[in-house]
Design a protein around this nucleic acid. Structure first.
Lengths: 202, 202
DNA sequence: ACCGACCTAATGTGTGTTCAGTAGGTTTCT
DNA sequence: AGAAACCTACTGAACACACATTAGGTCGGT
């Protein structure tokens, strides 16, 4: 595979570089945010000159969007819609370990784009709203099916859940030594007990 | 009170200006973070020139620390140590509304100082650790007193609680229209049910 | 003479971006 | 077949601007 015609090899090299820039950007964005990182630094980590980086991404902002696109693609690939939400939540912790940069980058970017004028504000805001809506919908589905008790306000609970997810992400970024898996298990466990219909509360 | 000797009035004016700079800084920090805001902008909002601002605070970083100092002072004034943690948590929502800038600024600054080289990293990290420790201690105290069931891991639960607090702060900054009070009530309620000893779980 | 509270103007540095220019490979026109 | 035009993947140097900070000055009060 690695022996191709020279031009194809050239293109492959370019694509490889592009990927390296992107992953370097993700790692650095996670740590410093997009205001805290410079094109030069990303370029250096990827082994290119700043101008070389701009050959692949037409501006710093374009690179930023590309990094977020990658996260979107990752999520879309791993979303198992119509599974039980509690089961889904249990799977989230694993994703933290599997794609730490992609996940961690997000919480940082969210905080850097609170203002409507910020470049990613609309994407972030839309994403937040979508998360809450999806989770609320999942709860309601469970309630209709009788799997969850009906006296829980799905919208309020959904906001709580998203808050926990964002918060644990933050804590984990600040202090990677926290017992991530246990905390997830604890939270989803208590969530399950809470949503369970009267009978099987221990 | 406003009619004093001229020199005292001058000093008071200076002190007033300092306060205005500080509160302007807090509001802007909440929205843009300290990397996203310029001295000039803060100065303008406070009605001073950039150089005028630096007359009161010797550098941008000093201003930042002063803003965090204000938050520390606020917290110290409102901490009712040795109250039940769940009751304490219930009071937190109210603080959000009472001092939105002071509170909101914090979550933003936390995210901007993840790296050990960042100027506020040590303060933020120390604060995070202290929060977790305090809450865990509160849970243990309740367990020893028999008010909480003993089979909950206090350290893990404390991490969860802090994550929720940080997360809800984030959500609220992004979307101030969320039902903050209800979400707090929901979370503290489920926490109470979970920590309650066997008998009175509904 | 000295102080606090400022201001305007200049300085210097960091940084995103642009501007040629080089080295190779490919397509197209004659 | 051979040259001209064009492509991708870059680089080094220069540019332009934003922004924190400094220097020096003004003004009123002690």
């Amino acid at each position: 595979m690695t022996e191709q015609r020279p031009y194809a090899a050239l293109l492959a090299k370019g694509e490889d570089r592009r990927q390296r820039i992107l992953t370097a950007a993700q790692r650095l964005l996670k740590r410093h945010g997009w205001r805290g990182i410079t094109l030069g630094r990303i370029a250096r980590e990827a082994g290119v000159s700043p101008a070389g980086l701009l050959h692949h991404f037409e501006s710093k902002e374009a690179l930023l969007h590309a990094a977020v696109d990658a996260r979107d693609a990752y999520d879309e690939a791993h979303a198992d819609m119509d599974a039980d939400i509690i089961e889904q939540l249990e799977g989230v912790a694993e994703r933290f370990h599997r794609a730490p940069d992609l996940i961690g980058m997000f919480a940082v970017l969210l905080m850097e784009n609170l203002d409507p004028d910020d470049p990613l504000h609309d994407r972030m805001f839309g994403r937040y709203r979508a998360s809450v809506r999806t989770i609320a919908e999942g709860i309601r589905r469970g309630q209709r099916a009788g799997r969850y008790r009906a006296d829980v306000d799905a919208d309020v609970k959904a906001v709580e859940i998203v808050a926990f997810l964002n918060g644990i992400e933050t804590s984990w970024l600040l202090d990677p030594s926290i017992p991530l898996t246990e905390v997830f298990k604890e939270y989803t466990g208590s969530l399950a007990r809470q949503l369970a219909p009267a009978a099987d509360t221990p």
